[in-house]
Amino acid sequence: MEVFEEFLSGIDDLQQRNRMEEVFAWIIKKFPNLTPVIKWNQPMFTDHGTYIIGFSVAKKHMSVAPERAAMERFSDEIVQAGYDHTKELMRIQWKHPIDFILLEKMIDFNILDKAGCSTFWR
Rank of each mutant, 00 (worst) to 15 (best):
I98E: 04
M106C: 10
G82E: 06
K95H: 06
D76I: 04
H96E: 13
L102K: 03
F120N: 12
P97S: 10
L112W: 09
S118K: 15
K105T: 00
K95R: 08
L103D: 06
Y83V: 05
T86I: 12
K87T: 14
F74K: 07
I78H: 02
T119S: 15
I107E: 03
N110Q: 08
I78P: 02
I92H: 07
D113H: 15
G116Y: 09
S118D: 13
Q80I: 10
K105L: 04
I92W: 05
T86N: 11
F120E: 14
P97A: 07
H85R: 08
D76P: 02
I111A: 09
N110W: 00
L112R: 14
Y83L: 05
N110G: 07
N110T: 05
S118A: 12
C117V: 15
F100S: 06
L112D: 14
K114N: 11
I101G: 11
D84Y: 02
I101H: 12
Q93V: 11
R73T: 13
D113W: 12
D99A: 05
I98N: 03
L102Y: 01
Q80M: 13
I101P: 00
W94L: 04
R73N: 08
I107G: 02
H85M: 02
N110K: 08
F109R: 03
R91D: 00
A81L: 00
S75H: 09
M106P: 06
I98Q: 01
K95D: 12
D99K: 05
I107Y: 03
K95Y: 05
I98T: 03
K87Q: 14
D76S: 12
I107N: 04
Y83F: 09
F109L: 02
G116C: 09
F74L: 04
D113G: 07
G82R: 04
S75D: 09
